[in-house]
Design a protein around this nucleic acid. Sequence first.
DNA 1: GCTTGACTTGGAGTACACTCCAACGTTTAT
DNA 2: ATAAACGTTGGAGTGTACTCCAAGTCAAGC
Lengths: 127, 127
Amino acid sequence: MTIAAVSRKYALTPDTLRYYERIGLLPPVARTSSGIRDYREDDCSWIEFIKCMRSAGLPIDFLVEYVKLFRQGDETLAQRIRMLKEQRDILAGRIADMHTSLDRLDMKIEHYENMMAPIEHEPKPME
Amino acid sequence: MTIAAVSRKYALTPDTLRYYERIGLLPPVARTSSGIRDYREDDCSWIEFIKCMRSAGLPIDFLVEYVKLFRQGDETLAQRIRMLKEQRDILAGRIADMHTSLDRLDMKIEHYENMMAPIEHEPKPME
DNA sequence: GCTTGACTTGGAGTACACTCCAACGTTTAT
DNA sequence: ATAAACGTTGGAGTGTACTCCAAGTCAAGC
């Protein structure tokens, strides 16, 4: 799979894909004999995982470290679990905070709509 | 209330408070005769609201526009409601996405813990 | 065999959101 | 009344995460 194809598939620019690989956010991708990246299944799985985690706001440092440990093999498993759990809790906390903000936004909207009501009051049909 | 007091109260640096005011994320704050900011109740409400919305990831542009419209008075109410609803939906979507990521993280953790289990298996007392 | 278009690299540039600083004025405690 | 602490401004600097670019390589179609 060429970089262009992967780019389309995951809506990440080729520049971003190369950038991610450069900083170690993705493991090095296999190359053709002439040096062109040839993305495999595994690479795609990583990209999807990384994209998902990045969109959730997990820090790049963490993910770089995670990728590094993963590539070191099974003896890093316990450490990776600890790291994942830590990030899981942080993420859960952020979701909770965002929910608080959402509720507040909803309250504000409701409040404003009540203010509007007397003006744009269109009597609804009884049924 | 001085800028230092507000800074402590909301855990925003004085620099950030001045920056927010400069870009219009906060309405201009009243000053003493010698030009020193004197934050009032209203200012604090704004700061708290803005802090909450920023922490939820609402864009600064949006909030600047919102503050601007608010200061223009009631004739902008309908527009503000539309804007709030739009942001509400975007936020709800982001929360949903983050929940997907959270679930995925949980699955990964569970999967890894199952891999660990045979190794660190400590037989639990029957009760 | 030559153009066209996709790929490569290293490095520079950009956008966002602060964050820091110098140079100066004001307030407060001794 | 003077030092220390806090406030002001405009502007420069920082960190993050890309994003763009020049200069060059490579493969495919005509």
